[in-house]
Design a protein around this nucleic acid. Structure first.
Lengths: 346, 346
DNA sequence: TTGAAAGCGCTAACAC
DNA sequence: GTGTTAGCGCTTTCAA
């Protein structure tokens, strides 16, 4: 069962490789007889075109590259499933790379994917990326890129994000409604789009409810919560304040679980002493102690839509006059971590 | 900043492409002067060899393919990090594909990776894979493959698994020691290696402790717990028994959380009514209600070792006289889901 | 309707 | 020490 090439078919059928090639692509110029002959033989021998050769020729690969911070994360892995399902249906393969929140790895992955001739890129920026010229250059060269979740501000291309402002506003307002006033916010580095938007929603909700914004209630985790000590430090600083917060709004999966873990270790009662709501897609939110109130992003849908936009860009290379910036609604799922009563086991 | 090729360099420097090629590979036959010239120019122009062209020529790609059931799973995503860290250091790229527990997708992914000329494959079988001839053929053709976690029984190649028997034995014995006698086991399809081994460990622990094995206490989830109704059905059947179990040992991430969720909904007190221990790597085990006793696999290490073995196979193509079957120790982490006392919040 | 040949980027056997 | 050439698998002018 060796790999068979066009040349093999040509030799076996006493034809030229070009005839075989054309027959396989069902070219109008080829005799029906010949075509049938070739097709049948190819089928019989289980011929498969060599995608590498095709890529070399066409500088295309029917594959799209995905660069995101990490896959060991419910939000991103759900999103990947969304990407895959669309790509799969459209005949594209998906190649995933993790930046691990490192700018250098993001750049390295980008270069590799480009040299591998991916037809387009789906990107969510690492938390340490401030310079995005590696993507800008590619866009200038005409490589389709769609950003999702963590998007650069200025770049001219499709972007698709959750309604971070709205989700945050809703979460904060919910805390206020349950009687909390000293609401802290633990979040990612400030230069990330998601951070700014979520911070803005939080601020606005405070403002609209007559609660003064206090910068010292906002803590930033430079590695997006990937480093345990970050979380600990952030929580500890909050606990050490004169006016200890009565609620914390955490901005991501990792920060949420990290923060919960610290609160547990310190035997802080949730939500009595401190209520908590997380901007997170963790699957077991309901099984946590206490069940976690969460702002959930439509991750799968985000993956779907980003992929659709990208493939549209790939297959219709004429520059669209206008690039879309879509924003997907989040949902606030209220559970006991903000319930205002003691959680009972069972 | 267009892509530059060897030909461009040759033209610019008035050399032949082969001279440039040799200079770049630092061949001994090339004049030091020339070499320097070429190297400097290449550096200046930011030359990068085209990996597609290399793959076409050499039928190699410096990349390894990974095929596993799903990414949105702590065990597998930790494992991927283990794979990546080794591969990265050895200069290989990692291409990940999910079978989503589907035999057809596993086959399709395999074919694609092979046509893309990956240098080797790292595989954990889907829960619906019973026929492994697609891998056997490749092995016969000389493609290096290393199996991990869910490994085929008969195949002659390196395999690396957790000590499933031992981990199960330990978990079951622990339940027995905390006074449980009616211990149920919810697990994956029986033909998976992990299922058989875990079942065997469970049986042996019962036997060694004078508890008769009762087949009706073992429930199988055909889709490995991916389908919610499976879990519900399994738990419900157990609850409907005359002798309702006083403990459940769940065999995987998905089955564990699914089972927990059902128990929660039914307001079963854990561990009083039913204790639970899971064979799982979920990151938030400690934050669950109650904190979950778990058999944890060294996922990262498994990824490391599998990758090392694979790369060894790739780089030393002479068939090793003997293939390794490594088994890595698991650790039982005891928490309150088996504590034998009421869990208190805070 | 079919074939010959060039070219995608690179390397290596074989000249010189 | 350097150049020429062929070839990896495929498509596509151009010619017949």
């Amino acid at each position: 069962m060796e790999t068979i090439t066009i040349k093999d078919i040509a030799r076996a059928l006493n034809l030229s490789t070009s005839t075989v090639s054309r027959a396989l692509r069902n070219s109008y110029e080829i005799n029906t007889e010949t075509k049938k002959l070739v097709l049948e033989y190819a089928e019989k021998m289980n011929y498969r075109p060599n995608p590498i050769a095709l890529s070399l020729r066409d500088s295309k690969s029917k594959s799209i590259g995905v660069i995101l911070p990490e896959i060991a994360n419910n939000f991103f892995s759900q999103l990947i499933n969304g990407i895959e399902s669309i790509a799969y249906n459209m005949g594209y393969h998906v190649v995933i790379f993790q930046s691990h929140e490192s700018y250098e790895r993001e750049v390295a992955n980008t270069n590799y994917l480009v040299s591998r001739k991916v037809d387009g890129l789906l990107v969510s920026l690492s938390s340490l990326t401030t310079d995005i010229s590696h993507f800008e250059e590619l866009l200038d060269k005409g490589l389709p890129i769609v950003f999702f979740d963590r998007v650069p501000k200025k770049v001219e291309t499709h972007k698709i994000v959750a309604d971070n402002f709205g989700g945050s506003y809703q979460a904060t307002e919910h805390l206020i409604k349950t009687g909390k006033r000293k609401i802290a916010h633990i979040t990612s580095p400030i230069y990330l789009s998601i951070t700014m938007e979520r911070l803005a929603g939080y601020k606005k909700a405070l403002e609209d409810n007559g609660i003064p914004f206090d910068e010292s209630y906002v803590k930033y985790c430079h590695h997006g919560g990937m480093v345990v000590s970050e979380n600990e430090a952030a929580v500890q600083e909050l606990l050490d304040m004169d006016e200890v917060p009565d609620a914390i709004f955490t901005a991501s999966d990792r920060i949420t679980t990290g923060c919960l873990s610290v609160l547990h270790r310190k035997h802080i009662r949730i939500p009595d002493e401190i209520a908590i709501v997380g901007f997170t897609n963790i699957g077991v939110a309901e099984l946590l102690n206490p069940p976690l109130t969460a702002v959930v992003q439509p991750a799968m849908d985000m993956g779907n839509q980003a992929t659709e936009l990208l493939i549209k860009l790939i297959e219709h290379p004429k520059k669209p006059t206008i690039f879309e910036s879509r924003s997907l609604k989040t949902s606030l799922i209220i559970r006991e971590s903000t319930a205002g009563k003691i959680v009972n086991v069972s």
